[in-house]
Each structure stands twice: as C-alpha cells, then as structure tokens.
Simulated scan of single mutants.
Amino acid sequence: MTTSVRLVEITGDNRDAVCALRVHPGQERFVASVAKSLEDAATTPEGEPWYRAVYVGDEPVGFVMLSWDVPPGRPGVLGPYYLWRLLVDGRYQGRGIGRAVLVEVVSLVRAVGGTELLTSHQPDDDGPGAFYRKFGFVPTGEIDDGEPVLRLDL
C-alpha cells in the first residue's frame, strides 16, 4: 500500500497538534516525543536540525527530524545527513506512513547531493531496527551512544 505524505513546517498553527502525537504505549523507549525532539533541536544547533510534521491529507500523523548537511568532522554529530527522529502516531501505524516518510526524506537528501543517510536505533528486538533494515539500511558496525548505526547508500 502506498501512502501519500507531506512534510510540513511546524508553526504556531500546528505545533500543539503535532506535539500531541504519540507512539503506542511501550514504544516510548524507542523514540522521544515531538516536544522533546523540538527541545533537542533548539539545544543542539551543532546538529543542524531540520524537522517537519508528517501529514496525510490535512491530518498530522507523525514527525521527522534530521541532521541536515552537517560539516565533516563536527564532534558528536553523525552526518552529514542523519535521521535523528521518526515518529508515527500509534493511531496511524501499520499504514506505510513511516516508509513513505523515508522515501520523501531520501528524495530530499538526494536532491541536494547527499550520498548516504545514517540513522541509529535502540537495539531491542522489538525496536525499529527491522523496519530500517527492510527499507535498505545496513549496519555500519559503529555504535553511537549505545545504539547501532545504520547507513542507507543513496
């Protein structure tokens, strides 16, 4: 099933609705809330945060945040393109939205000349690792803050 998503700037008009999005209970250990993600973006400018609300039609259904075009060698930041957060509200999971967001993100990164997209995840068996590997990410062998790092060649 192909789901059409739009990546929309977060503004005063949609911030509360986007911050209200929640993963299923029990998934909170895998991804920070939208509010925490926005706080992390504000307090980690060296990560070059780029974030958007994910919409299906007129409904906010998720959130995505990347480190965008980080200069090489910046300490403590994976990059240049790193998928920092991907959250799909529990009510909308299982509909292909996460995959559709990754397709959009890959297209955007390729359009600006990016050659790889990195991410990391909690190593738990029930975590998002299988989702990323199914999309085509492969382990790099690196560990960042206790999380295996994955790479998708673009």
Rank of each mutant, 00 (worst) to 15 (best):
D13H: 13
P45Y: 08
G26M: 08
E9I: 04
V5T: 08
T43R: 04
S33K: 07
L38D: 01
D16Q: 12
G26P: 13
G26E: 11
A20Q: 12
V18W: 07
R6H: 09
V18L: 09
V23E: 10
L66I: 05
E59H: 13
V56R: 06
S33V: 03
T11Y: 09
V54R: 07
S37Q: 08
P25Y: 12
P25R: 15
T11F: 09
E28A: 10
A53R: 02
E9R: 07
A42L: 09
V5P: 12
T44S: 14
G26T: 07
A17T: 05
V61N: 01
L66R: 06
P60M: 11
A42W: 04
P45E: 09
L21A: 01
Y51K: 01
F63V: 07
G26D: 10
S67G: 03
V64H: 08
V18E: 04
E46H: 15
H24K: 15
W50F: 10
H24W: 11
E9Q: 11
W50Q: 07
E46L: 15
V54D: 07
V5E: 02
G47I: 12
Q27P: 11
P60A: 03
A32T: 07
I10V: 06
V61K: 04
P49E: 02
R6G: 07
V31R: 01
R15H: 04
P60R: 02
V31S: 00
F63P: 08
P25H: 13
T44V: 04
K36T: 14
T44F: 08
L7S: 00
L21H: 10
A41H: 06
R6M: 04
L21I: 04
G47Q: 15
E9T: 06
E59G: 08
P60C: 09
M65W: 05
H24S: 13
D16T: 08
R6P: 00
R29W: 01
H24T: 14
V64L: 03
D40Y: 03
V56I: 05
D16I: 05
E28R: 10
L21C: 09
V56W: 00
A20I: 12
S67C: 08
E59T: 15
V5K: 13
A32G: 15
A20D: 12
Y55F: 12
L38V: 06
E9V: 05
S67D: 03
Y55M: 05
A20L: 11
A35R: 15
G62C: 07
F63Q: 12
V56E: 03
V56K: 05
H24Y: 11
E39K: 11
G62F: 11
F63N: 10
L66Q: 06
G12W: 06
N14Y: 09
V56D: 02
K36I: 10
S67P: 03
D16V: 07
R29E: 11
G12Y: 02
A42P: 01
P25F: 10
C19W: 02
E39V: 05
A32Y: 14
S37A: 13
G12H: 08
R52E: 03
E46Y: 13
V34E: 08
S37P: 04
T11C: 03
P25K: 13
L7C: 03
E48G: 04
E28W: 04
E59W: 08
S33N: 04
Y51N: 15
V18Q: 14
E9M: 02
